[in-house]
């Protein structure tokens, strides 16, 4: 953390770390409880042929639940002024995460290659402020290379959409 980082810290809203710590601990506790309950239902005890299916995972659930309580206590004790993330840091992360979700959704409709070309081009245009032709060219070229490597060289099938069908793939 340098001096300039501290300056932006003052001007940008922030998410306090202890809150996130506590939220994650609560989530882990919930997962731990689900593990315990779910495995107790299928049987976590001792059967005639040895330990039942839930035996080991249930105990792991207990371990997870107990340690998440420990994490929660530590979170409550930690200094309240620690930052998890500042808004100016979170913004680029969200700017990429949300299009990434869109990209994965798009794969289901257009196939891997078209979606990838669009994603690369859009990313370059919006995040990198590149001219449109450069962005589109990079996107198309990279997908072409990927198509050559995966479909032709290694014959690893990827999801394909209407465009690939046009070429007979």
């Amino acid at each position: 953390m340098s001096a300039e980082a501290e300056q932006t810290e003052a001007s940008s809203p922030r998410v306090p770390r202890w809150m996130v710590e506590l939220a994650v601990a609560a989530l882990l506790l919930a997962i731990g409880v689900v593990m315990i309950v779910s495995n107790a239902q299928i049987g976590a005890g001792w059967a005639a042929d040895g330990p039942q299916s839930g035996y080991f995972p249930l105990r792991m659930g207990v371990l997870l639940a107990l340690s998440s309580v420990g994490i929660g206590v530590q979170a409550l004790r930690m200094p309240k002024d620690l930052t998890f993330v500042r808004w100016d840091q979170l913004k680029p992360v969200l700017q990429v995460t949300i299009p990434m979700v869109g990209y994965v959704a798009l794969i289901q409709f257009t196939g891997m290659y078209v979606a990838s070309a669009l994603f690369v081009a859009a990313f370059m245009k919006v995040m990198g402020k590149y001219p449109l032709w450069k962005s589109v060219l990079t996107g198309v070229l990279s997908s072409a290379v990927l198509f050559w490597v995966f479909e032709i060289k290694f014959s690893v099938p990827m999801p394909k959409g209407p465009l690939e069908a046009l070429f007979g793939y």
Binding site: M100, S116, F119, V120, M124, M127, G128, T138, L146
Partner: peptide, 10 residues
């Protein structure tokens, strides 16, 4: 990074 990042994600 604006070129590298989307390629890595792909």
């Amino acid at each position: 990074f604006a070129i590298v990042a989307p390629l890595i994600i792909v």
